[in-house]
């Protein structure tokens, strides 16, 4: 039984806030910089009130200059600080790609191991809020393509609260993707704890099919698993959590156990993270499969504004249920 005495109910947003505040309290080298992180309190209110507590030296509002302030995060990290850069959304991170890929990711290797870049970049990601195509991208899978950086996707309260500390303890650049649709999610948080940034985690155990997912699609997969359980289909839900380096062992373990898998990813399917997960299953668990691996991804369109179109373009519990039943040879 779960002991509730040591738990409190908290939102994903507040869990992120508490993690950030703790990091600032514990290490004077840590500071936050980004657009509207200070007086505005953070676009998603993650840094609310931190300016009052830590002052403008450590909670730095920047102009709309993603390329420069991400690059400055790299420089500050090289210079002995532990910067946390907030890029308002993944959509704007495209303006900073050069610094992330051509500088942060290569620094340690190309300097012959002389320099490390202990930089954390946080950004929101994902669709589902009717903000249309330019504000609805999911590029974390793209970033997971790049050697030299680590990619995190907290999808639970516990990860939202503790992943930042693990990211700051890492000597290399870590990108942390907060799904915009999760900020208002509430859940239980153990009184104290920590998390690793190495492993995928089984969020629901099952035996008939493995639902492999991360980020904003995790609650949808859990919802689908709950509905499938009503029909006596036992779905395991694996939360990837860390998109680079991928925990291939956990993926293979779930597939070996369930013999069927559906990969759920809000990114588009072509050339995607979901494709990478499927490829690893084929390479390492092919003979454990009873059916081809299936996918539920975003439809290959710029994400539309109109609600009915946006919902139809994204992974939804119903689509996951349909995919599972197709795998099991049942009609939806």
């Amino acid at each position: 039984m779960i002991d509730n005495t040591n738990k409190k109910r908290i939102s994903y947003r507040d869990a992120l806030h508490d993690g950030l505040r703790e990091a600032l309290q514990q290490d004077p080298r840590v500071f936050l910089l980004g657009e509207d992180v200070g007086r505005y309190g953070g676009t998603y209110a993650v840094s609310k009130n931190l300016l009052d507590e830590f002052g403008p030296e450590r909670i730095r509002d920047t102009p709309l200059s993603e390329l420069a302030f991400v690059g400055m995060g790299i420089g500050a990290a090289l210079g002995g600080m532990r910067p946390i850069v907030e890029v308002m959304t993944v959509n704007f991170s495209l303006l900073a790609l050069d610094q992330i890929i051509n500088t942060a990711a290569i620094y340690h290797h190309m300097s012959g191991g002389q320099f490390s870049v202990p930089l954390v970049i946080r950004m929101s990601t994902g669709a589902g809020r009717q903000v249309a195509a330019q504000h609805s991208n999911s590029f974390e899978g793209w970033f997971a393509h790049i050697p030299g950086i680590k990619i995190l996707a907290p999808a639970t309260i516990d990860d939202a609260r503790h992943m930042l500390a693990a990211a700051l303890a890492d000597p290399d650049p870590v990108l942390l993707f907060e799904h915009a649709a999760l900020y208002n999610m509430e859940g239980e948080l153990p009184a104290d704890g920590s998390v690793d940034i190495k492993s995928a985690k089984v969020r629901r155990a099952g035996t008939d099919v493995a639902l492999i997912t991360y980020g904003g699609s995790l609650p949808k997969a859990l919802q689908a698993a709950e509905a499938l359980a009503q029909e006596n289909i036992s779905a395991e839900v694996l939360d990837l959590r860390v998109l680079r380096p991928l925990d291939t062992g956990a993926i293979v373990a779930s597939v070996r156990k369930c013999h069927r898998a559906v990969v759920i990813d809000e990114g588009w399917r072509s050339g995607s993270l979901s494709a990478e997960v499927m490829a690893r299953i084929m390479e390492q668990a092919f003979f454990d499969l009873d059916a081809p691996v299936a996918r539920v991804c975003a439809e290959e369109v710029p994400i539309p504004y109109a609600r009915h179109l946006e919902e139809a373009a994204l992974p939804q519990p119903e689509k996951i249920i349909t995919a599972v039943k197709a795998l099991l040879g049942e009609s939806a």
Partner: peptide, 30 residues
């Protein structure tokens, strides 16, 4: 690159070194 002489690299992306330099300076100022 040379850690000993604080040479933070030849950056082969034109203007790529400027933000990094400003970040190093920010660290020194802080």
């Amino acid at each position: 690159f040379d850690k000993r002489t604080r040479l933070f690299g030849g950056n082969a992306i034109v203007a790529g070194g400027l933000p990094v330099a400003a970040g190093l300076a920010l660290a020194d100022k802080m």
